[in-house]
Design a protein around this nucleic acid. Sequence first.
DNA 1: CGAAAATTTGCGTACTACGAAAATTTTGCT
DNA 2: AGCAAAATTTTCGTAGTACGCAAATTTTCG
Lengths: 275, 275
Amino acid sequence: MTQTQDAAAAQAGLGRLAGPAGPAGPAELAGRSELAAGWEQRLRERLAQPESLRARKKLATRRALGLAAMRLAVDRGLDNVIVEDIAAAAGVSPRTFNNYFASKYEAICSLAMDRGRLAGCALRMRPPGEPLMDAITDAVLEPYLAAEQAPSLEWLDSWRLVVRSPELQGEYLRTLHATQYALAEAIADRILTADPRRSMFPAILAGAVTSAMQVALERWLASDPPTALAPLIRQALSELRSGWPAEITPAANSVAEGDRRPDPDQDSPDFETTP
Amino acid sequence: MTQTQDAAAAQAGLGRLAGPAGPAGPAELAGRSELAAGWEQRLRERLAQPESLRARKKLATRRALGLAAMRLAVDRGLDNVIVEDIAAAAGVSPRTFNNYFASKYEAICSLAMDRGRLAGCALRMRPPGEPLMDAITDAVLEPYLAAEQAPSLEWLDSWRLVVRSPELQGEYLRTLHATQYALAEAIADRILTADPRRSMFPAILAGAVTSAMQVALERWLASDPPTALAPLIRQALSELRSGWPAEITPAANSVAEGDRRPDPDQDSPDFETTP
DNA sequence: CGAAAATTTGCGTACTACGAAAATTTTGCT
DNA sequence: AGCAAAATTTTCGTAGTACGCAAATTTTCG
């Protein structure tokens, strides 16, 4: 088994992106509450090191593959990477790659996917008394804060690749969907609604939150003097916090041709609120 | 090439829903806001037959391919359909198929994709005085009402296939994304906020609307005595209308430890939120 | 009508996804 | 330790996919 050595070497070489702390060190997750114990366990199994050596190796291989895929794609461009390259970079056979991922796109997005699921777990671990939107904000920010603290050069390039490559769009949307689903589940558990009329509320709120994050992400990628992502997400979510303008009627007055008026008040939320 | 006609005519079971042309241009996230004047024109171009014979044929081929793909997939099962079959059913060569779609999955979802875009156009055509949520509700329902009036046997099976097949998830999410984007643009144009570029409200609302539709769709698919889809969508959107409970705080309702739900550890969760 | 433009088609190639069985590694038990 | 069972990786083979390229065909337009 000489290839394990190679794999280890490859992982060590690539390890700068993840770092010894990992892309999102679950050990640092704040505010563990007892009721979330089961979830923390599960999170730990998934993102940290499980007890079994076999499972740990498997997770390491998975990460090495995902990481190598991302790195190669960023470096060479998406079209100049084939599965064989990724497998070689991770020190496994090409066939093994497909035991972990169904496509190279899935591999590239696997880290983002993990981050999405993490948000749901993070929400479950917020203290129960915290206002919902506060909890959501903190939960959603957690993975990004962790990653920005240890900024790797590719952090922005990686996102740009994932968000802007047409071939990756499907996989990218999958990660968003996973995030949304995880958030919806966590919200549902948190608010414990018994009101049937509000039964769709968690899913709807999760959708709104995810959309806000998307917008924030887009703006971050487009920001010319590159800014930090976290404040943008905070800002986007604050727009949600500000309440749901259900009474919005479309400036009922004319949208008739040529007559554009500078918008009568309504919500027009301020934007330069730097939290 | 007389077969195109025959195939298109033969397959015209579902085919009153129309679609845009965009051959192989996936992530065309462009589409700047325009004044509503040109939109009816554009919609008409897409829905009705363009003047050019060549363009009409092209559209017919596209529809025949999408329809054949859907029909074959529903009939035989997703894995028992290959591109060659679809092309044959539509009366074109296999190579031509790939001139229209990048994958069979894309072909299968093309009708749903067209419907999504249609929602955006429909919103632009609602009378300007109408309250925003009313307009959105009607716009979003338009494609579904049309299809339920003339119910083809596959209407429900098609949706089940698209929503529940893991291989199609990426493409399905694309259609949702397209819907969301189209709605966001239309909403932005409609409410004419002071600085459209900065307000995230349209995108967030569109996200909430799309999520509500997703939930409604899930419930519809799961409804055992099959019900109509439209009322479910209406209901979901009415939950949105009812306002945004910004003041929701989870109070002290603690989660009992026996209260666990069935293990979200699995991959690719479908979107059902039934608390 | 006839030339120009667009589209379809056939062919070839690199790549992908995955089944099946053999080789290897880890685990659990004594 | 050591050995058998279970899990994982690997090798090999195959069906299918995506797409470039150039020839054939169809549509448009002067």
